[in-house]
């Protein structure tokens, strides 16, 4: 399998104007507050990317190819403990029905009792199968649909008053790893978080997740600045990317630095009571952000005025250079509130 280039090479990854304008820009105000970033995941939002549960954009085929490449090189990136068999079908139902509803021109799901037919026009797939019968699909059901979905998914099983990361497919992780975290509890997964406020947030998150119901719809946009358009920044491949964050800043900042947004979503699965944590990754180069005046000015203000504790947690690479790069795009005039591009 040849190495796909889109997410490996800063020169090939780019967003067409149309794709850029649907980017889930994360900053609604000039100052970034970590506290209030839970929002309703109800297919509404300031940009098109948030109007679908499992969003599909122009990078779909490239990302599916990238995922297949990572999995071929490292099959452990998709691992599920056996007690998640029922949850796998929950995920199949949730993702297929969402894709078919949100992108009817690309996906179609026909259900007749347990006889299902799934069509994915983007990948040329037409698959009939029996819901609940793993032998009727070419690979295990979770893997089957996760390979056709942009973004990562992990499954959290509830035992007692604790959640455990017992499976998932993680090919676009930012500094973590599924085989490393597999079987860990919620607190262990967040073990590197040390601040008192941050720990309190982890506990609040756990209490919330434990009570989540299938009707609960929440998402949380998270962001980070990257020095490479790589999707796969997992611990497994740190040798390939960690060096990029050290030393001198890259020559062409606008081209080489990217704003990476992870739209994180939580779902309580209906049959299994397991929690699905879905992470959809979007990237835009700084030079692309710079073409949207409101976003460029706002990103400038947010990065310039970051709270020191947040700045430490976010570890923004080459922050001073980045602020200097964005300054010419900010005339200091008030900006429209909200995350929309205009």
């Amino acid at each position: 399998m040849t190495e796909p280039q889109t997410f490996r090479n800063a020169l090939t990854f780019c967003n067409a104007r149309e794709t850029l304008l649907r980017f889930p820009f994360p900053f609604a105000a000039d100052r970034y507050e970590t506290a209030a970033n839970l929002e309703q995941n109800d297919r509404t939002g300031p940009c098109a990317a948030l109007r679908a549960l499992f969003d599909v954009d122009a990078h779909y085929r490239a990302e599916i190819e990238e995922k297949a490449f990572v999995l071929a090189r490292d099959p452990q990136r998709c691992t599920l403990l056996p007690h998640l068999d029922l949850a796998q079908w929950d995920v199949v139902e949730l993702v297929m029905s969402s894709l078919a509803r949100d992108f009817p021109q690309l996906f179609r799901l026909d259900r007749d009792g347990r006889r299902w037919r799934w069509r994915n026009a983007a990948l040329g797939i037409d698959q009939s199968f029996r819901f609940g019968d793993p032998d009727s699909l070419p690979c295990p059901p979770f893997e089957y649909i996760a390979r056709q979905t942009q973004g990562d998914m992990v499954l959290l099983a509830q035992r007692g008053d604790m959640l455990y990361l017992d499976g998932g497919m993680l090919t676009a992780a930012q500094g973590w790893s599924l085989p490393f975290d597999l079987g860990m509890s919620w607190r262990e997964i967040h073990g590197e978080v040390t601040g008192e406020r941050e720990q309190a947030a982890i506990e609040r998150g756990l209490a919330f997740a434990l009570r989540m119901q299938p009707e609960t719809q929440v998402r949380r946009p998270n962001w980070v600045i990257c020095v490479t358009p790589r999707l796969d920044n997992g611990l497994e491949t740190a040798a390939e990317w960690a060096g990029l964050y050290e030393g001198a800043p890259p020559a062409d900042l606008g081209r080489n630095l990217l704003l990476r947004v992870e739209v994180q979503q939580l779902y309580r699965l209906r049959r299994s009571h397991v929690i699905l944590f879905a992470i959809r990754v979007y990237m835009a180069r700084l030079s692309e952000i710079a073409t949207v005046p409101k976003w460029a000015a706002r990103l400038h203000r947010v990065l310039r005025d970051l709270d020191p504790a947040v700045a430490r947690a976010k570890a923004v690479p080459f922050r001073d250079d980045l602020v200097a790069y964005l300054a010419p795009f900010d005339d200091g005039a008030p900006l429209a509130p909200g995350r929309a591009p205009f």
Binding site: A36, L38, Q40, A207, F208, R211, V218
Partner: peptide, 26 residues
């Protein structure tokens, strides 16, 4: 409202009489 789980604080309402039994984490 946002989270409907006592975590985000969006559904805060003022109480003028009676004693609330707090079950939130906010």
């Amino acid at each position: 409202y946002l989270c409907r789980g006592g975590v985000c604080g969006a559904c805060r309402v003022g109480v003028l009489a009676g004693r609330p039994e707090h079950r939130d984490r906010v």
